[in-house]
Amino acid sequence: MVRVLLADDEAMIRAGVRAILESDPRIEVVAEAADGHQAVESVLAHRPDVALLDIRMPRLDGLAAAAELGRVAPGTRVVMLTTFGEDEYIARALTGGASGFLLKSGDPHELLAGVHAVAGGAAYLSPQVAHQVIRRLDGG
């Protein structure tokens, strides 16, 4: 069973993502948070395998929350789930300790695959993000 914390400041987005995650009997959403500060507190309280974080959240954004989780809860792997796929966000997330980067516009199966991959110790980028990273590394 993969235990997941879900953090997004929009309640409707959290509800939709929760429904997708809970469609997989091997995933359990153990907590939700509406900002990055709550996400860090919830990870410390619930010790999930994966923290699924939005980038733009109040009080403490997802990038700062990911960095903090790397310090205080290194056993919890981080996946960024966001609308914002700009190169700067991708680079900051990955160099800041995130093991995955998914776009909210992606297929729900990508979300499930990403959570399982990261929980299993691998990295996971949505195909659109992977293409951007490859293009950037190739100088394009």
Rank of each mutant, 00 (worst) to 15 (best):
V2F: 13
R3V: 09
R3P: 10
V4D: 07
V4S: 12
L5G: 02
L6I: 00
A7L: 13
D8L: 03
D9P: 07
I13A: 08
I13P: 01
R14P: 08
A15S: 14
G16P: 10
G16H: 06
A19R: 14
I20K: 06
I20L: 06
E22N: 03
D24P: 13
D24Q: 03
P25E: 04
I27M: 02
E28H: 15
A33N: 02
A33T: 10
D35Y: 11
G36H: 05
H37A: 13
H37P: 00
Q38N: 09
Q38Y: 05
V40A: 13
V40P: 04
E41C: 14
A45M: 03
R47G: 05
P48Q: 10
D49F: 01
D49P: 02
D49I: 04
V50T: 07
V50E: 09
V50H: 07
L53F: 08
D54P: 03
D54Y: 02
I55K: 02
I55W: 04
R56L: 03
M57F: 05
P58I: 00
G62L: 09
L63Y: 01
L63D: 03
A64W: 11
A64V: 11
A65L: 15
A67F: 05
A67K: 06
L69S: 02
R71S: 06
R71T: 13
R71W: 06
R71Y: 09
V72C: 14
V72P: 11
G75C: 07
R77C: 11
R77Y: 08
R77A: 13
V78K: 01
V78Y: 06
M80T: 12
M80P: 09
M80Q: 05
M80C: 14
T82R: 00
T83R: 11
T83V: 12
Y89D: 00
Y89L: 02
Y89A: 05
I90K: 01
R92I: 07
A93H: 01
L94S: 08
G97W: 14
G97A: 01
A98R: 01
G100M: 02
G100W: 02
G100Y: 07
F101V: 04
F101N: 02
L102D: 09
K104H: 05
S105C: 11
G106S: 10
D107L: 02
D107V: 07
D107T: 03
H109Q: 15
E110I: 10
L111K: 00
H116N: 09
A117V: 12
A119I: 15
G120I: 08
G121E: 13
A122Y: 04
A123I: 14
Y124H: 10
L125I: 08
P127A: 06
Q128C: 12
V129Q: 07
A130C: 10
H131I: 11
H131M: 08
V133K: 00
I134T: 15
R135I: 08
L137W: 08
